[in-house]
Simulated assay, not measured.
Amino acid sequence: MSTKNAVRGIVTMRSTAGTGFTYMTSKNRRNTPDRLVMRKYDPVARAVVEFREER
């Protein structure tokens, strides 16, 4: 693992609408140890829904 990504890890955000659509993002694992939740657009559902971090 490189020094650039030692703290910031890549996480997958999956839609709670059940469509299976995902976003990829990164987060600082030291500052945010709990799961990330964001409201983003789901093009399959054609709506803004919650996306939760997958492990």
Rank of each mutant, 00 (worst) to 15 (best):
M1I: 08
S2P: 04
S2K: 14
S2C: 11
S2L: 13
S2F: 07
S2G: 13
T3E: 13
K4N: 14
K4P: 03
N5G: 08
A6W: 08
A6D: 14
A6Y: 08
V7N: 14
V7H: 11
V7S: 10
V7G: 08
V7K: 14
V7I: 15
R8Y: 15
R8D: 15
R8I: 03
G9D: 03
G9V: 09
G9C: 10
I10T: 08
I10A: 11
V11Y: 15
V11W: 04
M13G: 06
M13N: 01
M13F: 07
R14K: 12
R14A: 14
R14Q: 11
S15E: 01
S15T: 11
S15W: 04
S15K: 00
T16V: 11
T16N: 00
A17I: 04
A17W: 00
A17H: 01
A17R: 04
G18K: 01
G18R: 01
T19I: 10
T19D: 06
T19F: 01
T19G: 03
T19R: 04
F21R: 01
F21M: 07
F21A: 11
F21G: 02
T22H: 05
Y23D: 02
Y23G: 07
Y23W: 11
Y23P: 00
Y23F: 14
M24H: 10
M24G: 11
M24T: 05
T25I: 00
T25V: 04
T25P: 02
T25M: 00
S26N: 12
N28D: 15
N28C: 13
N28L: 05
N28G: 09
N28A: 09
N28Q: 08
R29F: 08
R29H: 15
R30S: 12
N31D: 13
N31E: 15
N31V: 05
T32F: 11
P33L: 09
D34Q: 13
R35M: 02
R35N: 10
L36K: 06
V37P: 03
V37H: 15
V37Y: 13
V37W: 04
V37R: 15
M38V: 15
M38F: 09
M38C: 13
M38Q: 13
M38S: 12
R39D: 14
R39E: 12
K40E: 15
Y41R: 11
Y41I: 14
D42L: 01
D42K: 01
D42P: 08
P43R: 06
A45D: 02
R46T: 12
R46Y: 00
R46I: 00
R46E: 12
R46G: 06
R46N: 11
A47V: 12
A47H: 04
V48H: 09
V48Y: 10
V49S: 09
V49Q: 05
V49K: 02
E50W: 02
E50D: 15
F51R: 03
F51P: 05
R52D: 03
E53L: 04
E54F: 03
E54W: 00
R55D: 11
R55W: 01
